[in-house]
Measured scan of single mutants.
Amino acid sequence: GPIITTQVTIPKDLAGSIIGKGGQRIKQIRHESGASIKIDEPLEGSEDRIITITGTQDQIQNAQYLLQNSVKQY
């Protein structure tokens, strides 16, 4: 399918649970989903961080599912 980009906003407090120790968790999510995932640095004074996910519809759905699971375990 076509490559698309979607953005998800997360509270910055949850960023740690998604990134994992030394970036292990986010690497695993990238690997498992096949999507490209970029977590922006939090904006000055903002409570949120923006996650940019790029890939096919399937890859993005996979990545979103894995991201949600990471947050739930936290």
Rank of each mutant, 00 (worst) to 15 (best):
residue 16 G to R: 11
residue 63 A to E: 00
residue 39 I to F: 13
residue 33 S to K: 00
residue 29 I to H: 03
residue 26 I to Q: 05
residue 35 A to Y: 01
residue 43 L to F: 03
residue 53 I to M: 07
residue 18 I to C: 02
residue 3 I to M: 14
residue 52 T to V: 06
residue 2 P to C: 05
residue 63 A to W: 01
residue 50 I to V: 14
residue 56 T to R: 12
residue 3 I to K: 06
residue 14 L to G: 12
residue 5 T to M: 04
residue 10 I to K: 01
residue 12 K to N: 06
residue 36 S to H: 10
residue 74 Y to D: 13
residue 66 L to H: 03
residue 31 H to F: 04
residue 36 S to Q: 10
residue 39 I to P: 05
residue 66 L to F: 07
residue 55 G to R: 00
residue 12 K to T: 13
residue 45 G to S: 06
residue 23 G to H: 08
residue 42 P to S: 04
residue 14 L to N: 08
residue 5 T to C: 03
residue 42 P to M: 07
residue 22 G to I: 15
residue 20 G to V: 07
residue 60 I to Q: 05
residue 32 E to M: 15
residue 71 V to F: 05
residue 41 E to T: 05
residue 25 R to M: 15
residue 45 G to D: 12
residue 44 E to S: 10
residue 37 I to H: 00
residue 33 S to R: 01
residue 57 Q to K: 11
residue 36 S to V: 14
residue 13 D to T: 10
residue 63 A to Y: 02
residue 50 I to Y: 10
residue 38 K to P: 01
residue 32 E to R: 05
residue 59 Q to V: 10
residue 20 G to E: 12
residue 61 Q to E: 13
residue 36 S to R: 11
residue 27 K to S: 08
residue 69 N to V: 10
residue 18 I to M: 11
residue 30 R to N: 13
residue 25 R to T: 08
residue 58 D to W: 04
residue 13 D to M: 10
residue 14 L to H: 12
residue 21 K to R: 13
residue 57 Q to L: 03
residue 6 T to C: 02
residue 4 I to Q: 01
residue 33 S to F: 01
residue 20 G to R: 07
residue 16 G to M: 14
residue 51 I to L: 08
residue 56 T to N: 11
residue 39 I to K: 02
residue 28 Q to K: 15
residue 22 G to D: 07
residue 60 I to L: 09
residue 21 K to V: 09
residue 56 T to G: 07
residue 26 I to A: 06
residue 30 R to Q: 11
residue 60 I to K: 01
residue 35 A to C: 10
residue 16 G to Y: 04
residue 16 G to T: 14
residue 69 N to G: 14
residue 54 T to Q: 04
residue 9 T to V: 04
residue 49 R to F: 03
residue 74 Y to R: 15
residue 58 D to Q: 08
residue 56 T to Q: 08
residue 34 G to C: 08
residue 28 Q to N: 15
residue 48 D to T: 10
residue 59 Q to S: 12
residue 15 A to Q: 04
residue 67 L to I: 15
residue 21 K to L: 12
residue 11 P to F: 02
residue 32 E to F: 01
residue 49 R to S: 11
residue 10 I to L: 15
residue 39 I to W: 12
residue 21 K to D: 15
residue 56 T to Y: 05
residue 29 I to G: 02
residue 5 T to Y: 02
residue 49 R to M: 11
residue 17 S to W: 03
residue 25 R to N: 05
residue 23 G to T: 07
residue 38 K to T: 07
residue 57 Q to W: 02
residue 37 I to K: 00
residue 33 S to D: 01
residue 74 Y to S: 15
residue 22 G to V: 05
residue 52 T to L: 13
residue 36 S to Y: 05
residue 3 I to C: 05
residue 69 N to R: 12
residue 54 T to M: 07
residue 5 T to G: 00
residue 6 T to P: 00
residue 67 L to D: 00
residue 42 P to E: 08
residue 43 L to P: 04
residue 10 I to E: 04
residue 21 K to E: 10
residue 60 I to Y: 00
residue 12 K to C: 05
residue 24 Q to L: 05
residue 69 N to C: 14
residue 27 K to P: 06
residue 5 T to P: 02
residue 30 R to P: 03
residue 37 I to L: 12
residue 68 Q to C: 02
residue 49 R to H: 11
residue 64 Q to G: 01
residue 24 Q to C: 04
residue 10 I to N: 01
residue 5 T to I: 02
residue 13 D to R: 07
residue 34 G to D: 02
residue 50 I to L: 12
residue 55 G to S: 00
residue 6 T to N: 03
residue 38 K to F: 06
residue 38 K to H: 12
residue 3 I to T: 15
residue 18 I to N: 05
residue 49 R to T: 13
